[in-house]
Design a protein around this nucleic acid. Structure first.
Lengths: 332, 332
DNA sequence: CGCCGCATTGCAACCGATTGCAAGTTTCGT
DNA sequence: ACGAAACTTGCAATCGGTTGCAATGCGGCG
C-alpha cells in the first residue's frame, strides 16, 4: 500500500537504518548517504509513519484534549488557541467530547489505548478528581481552567475563581448596589461554587446588603436567560454577578424582554471577557480572564511534563481584572 | 512501563496469540482461555495498544478533522456534532486548525504520518482542490460544507449554495425590496461566490431592481459589522442577503449604531440558522441549513468509505428553507 | 476401538520503524 | 606513513500486536 522505509532503502541502495537515520534529528549519516536517501524518498513520496516509530520511541506526540463545554462560545476561542499552540510545537490534538459524561474511566482507557503523551482537561466545571484519574493511570495531565489549590494533585493552570467572586462583589459594592445577587453556573461546577464562595465571603462582611443567589442549569445563553427570567418574576436584586459572560448575555436578553436597561435598572457583571462581550450591542462589563496566556502556559507545561514526567504538580494562577463597559452603573 | 500483551500472556499462562484473540472480535478462543485471559487482564489493568495493532491491521480509527474557521460561532456547534458523531462510532477526531494556511501539502503529509483512516474537510471556503489533494494522496476524504457539483471529484456533503443565493433573492423580492444587496463572505471562499452567483442569477431576471454587492474580509462578526458600517457611509440598499448568520449579526450591530431598525429601515436575511440567530435580541430571519443531518451524513459516508475505499464520489446535498423571524418586513 | 473433523492453540513471521553494537571507513596528528 | 580517534554503516533485536499455518486435543460417529 503506502511506501515504507524498506522501499526507500531499496531504491537508495542502503540499509533501512540509514534511511531511518536521515529522518531523525542528530543521527550520524554522511552527506552522501543522506542525499541518496532524500532523493529516493522524494521520488517515492515517502514520509515516515509516526505511529510505527512511536512504538520504539515511546512518544506519539498525540495530546488528548478533553472538554465538556460545547455550548459556550468562549470555547471556540479556547479550541482555536489550543489547537494552534499544540500544532506550533508539533503536537497533535486528539479531541474527546465529554458531553453527558462525568466518569473519567472511559476517557482514560481510550486515551491510553491511543498512547497519548499527555492529556489536557479543558474545563472549569470538572472536579480535580477527574484530572487525577489520568495522573493515577500514569498519563501526564494538566487541568486548564481547573480548580486552583495551594497544593494541587495535578498541574492546574487557570485563575483564582474564589478571588474573582470577591472581585465581583467588591465591584458591585463600589458602585453602590445594595441588593446583590449571584447568578452562577450549575451547582456541580467547581468554578460556579468557587466564585460563589468568594462572592459570599466578601458580601458577608457587610450588614446593609441584601444577598441572593441562584444557579443556572449550565453555562449557556439559554440557561442564563431562563434563570434571569425566573428571577424577574419575583423581586430581583439590583446588581448581579453572573458567573460567566454567556450567562450574562442570556440574562441581558431576559432584561430586555422586560424592558429593563442593564446598567440603569439592573447591573450585571460577567466573567471571561469573551469576544462577544465587546460587541456594541452587548457591551458587557466583565472580569477579564487571560485565556491566551492560560492556554500558552498550559501547553508549555505539557512540553515540560514530556521532558520530566515526574515533575512536581504545580498551580499556575493568572490574575484577572475588571473591564468596564456598559452594564454596571458608574462607581460612586 | 505500561502493561503489554506479553505480561498478560505470562500471568494467564497462555500464548500471546491467545491474549490477542480474546481481544479481537470473532476470533477463535475457548471460553476457558478467554476467562483466564480476562482475569489476568483485569488484574494488570491491561488495555490493548491501538496504535501497535494498527500496524498490522492497517486501521487506526483516527479521522483527520480539518477546519479553517475558528471565528464563526456556528463552528462550535459543528465541532460538537462532529466529535460526538465520530465518538459514537468508535472513531477518534484528530484536529487540524488551518487558520492562515491554504496549501494542503502540509496537512496531507501530517495526516499521512499519523495514518488517519480518513479525512473530513469541514469548510465552506476551501476549494475542491484542497480535498482533492487528500484523495490524490490515497487518503479517503469527505468535504463537508464543500462546493457541490454534479460530478464531484471527492465526496461532498452540504447544501446547494447557488440555490440558497436564489432563494434569498426571491425572498427579498417577495417582500418588495427594490434596492437589494449581497453582503458576502470573503471573495476567495467558494460558498461566498456560489451564493453570490445564485443571488445575481435571480435578481438579474428583473429590471426594476437596483443591485449591489460587497464582500467581507472573512466570516466573522467584526468583518460583517465593518462592511455594513462602510456601506452605511454611502447609499445603502434596503434589503441585504448576508452570506452567513455571523455576518448578519455583525451587520445588525452596525445598523443599530446608526439608529436603524432591521426589518423596518433595512432588511437582512442570513444563512445558517445558528443558535444565536434564535436569540430574542437577534431574531434573525435566515435560511436554515440542516447542520446536524449534514454532519451525521458525513460521518456515515466516512464509515462507508472505510468499508469500500474505491467508492465512487458522491454529492449529498440537503435542502434549505427560510426561517422567518424579525429582520425582513412581512411578505407583501 | 479407531478414525475423522473441527475447534483451539502456539509458533513464528510480519507490520514500520528505532537503536545498541561491532565492523568498516575516514580523518588527522605527528 | 602509521596508529588512534572519530565517523559511518549494516546487522539484528526490539517496540506491541496480528495472523497464517501446522500441531494438538477433543468429541462424535460408525
Amino acid at each position: 500500500m503506502s511506501v515504507t522505509l524498506k522501499d526507500v532503502a531499496a531504491l537508495a541502495g542502503v540499509s533501512r537504518s540509514a534511511v531511518s537515520r536521515t529522518f531523525t534529528e542528530g543521527a550520524s549519516v554522511s552527506a552522501k548517504t543522506r542525499s541518496k536517501v532524500e532523493k529516493a524518498a522524494q521520488e517515492l513520496g515517502y514520509s515516515p509513519n509516526a505511529l510505527a516509530s512511536s512504538l520504539t520511541t515511546g512518544r506519539t506526540k498525540l495530546i488528548g484534549l478533553i472538554s465538556n463545554n460545547f455550548h459556550n462560545p468562549i470555547f471556540l476561542e479556547v479550541f482555536d488557541q489550543f489547537t494552534r499552540a499544540l500544532q506550533e510545537r508539533g503536537l497533535r490534538p486528539l479531541i474527546v467530547n465529554l458531553t453527558d459524561e462525568t466518569e473519567p474511566a472511559n476517557s482514560v482507557r481510550m486515551l491510553r489505548q491511543y498512547s497519548v503523551d499527555a492529556v489536557i482537561v479543558a474545563s472549569s466545571t470538572l472536579p480535580p478528581s477527574f484530572a487525577k484519574a489520568f495522573h493515577d493511570a500514569g498519563v501526564p495531565v494538566v487541568h486548564t481552567f481547573g480548580r486552583s489549590a495551594t497544593s494541587p494533585e495535578v498541574h492546574v493552570v487557570g485563575i483564582d475563581n474564589v478571588e474573582c467572586g470577591r472581585m465581583a462583589a467588591r465591584e458591585l459594592m463600589a458602585r453602590g448596589y445594595k441588593r446583590v445577587g449571584y447568578l452562577g453556573g450549575p451547582k456541580d461546577a467547581t468554578s460556579a461554587m468557587d466564585r460563589y464562595r468568594g462572592f459570599m465571603e466578601e458580601v458577608e462582611k457587610y450588614t446593609d446588603l441584601e444577598v441572593s443567589h441562584s444557579f443556572a442549569d449550565n453555562y449557556s445563553f439559554e440557561a442564563g436567560r431562563a434563570e434571569m427570567l425566573r428571577l424577574l418574576e419575583g423581586a430581583p436584586a439590583d446588581g448581579y454577578f453572573c458567573g460567566d459572560d454567556i450567562l450574562s448575555i442570556g440574562a441581558l436578553s431576559a432584561l430586555s424582554d422586560h424592558g429593563l436597561k442593564p446598567g440603569i435598572d439592573i447591573g450585571i457583571i460577567g466573567l471571561n471577557d469573551m469576544e462577544m462581550s465587546r460587541w456594541e450591542s452587548v457591551s458587557l462589563t466583565t472580569i477579564h480572564q487571560p485565556i491566551k496566556q492560560i492556554i500558552t502556559s498550559s501547553v508549555d507545561l505539557v512540553e515540560e511534563m514530556l521532558k520530566d514526567p515526574a515533575r512536581y504538580p504545580e498551580a499556575r494562577i493568572f490574575p484577572c481584572r475588571v473591564i468596564e463597559r456598559g452594564t454596571l452603573r458608574p462607581r460612586s
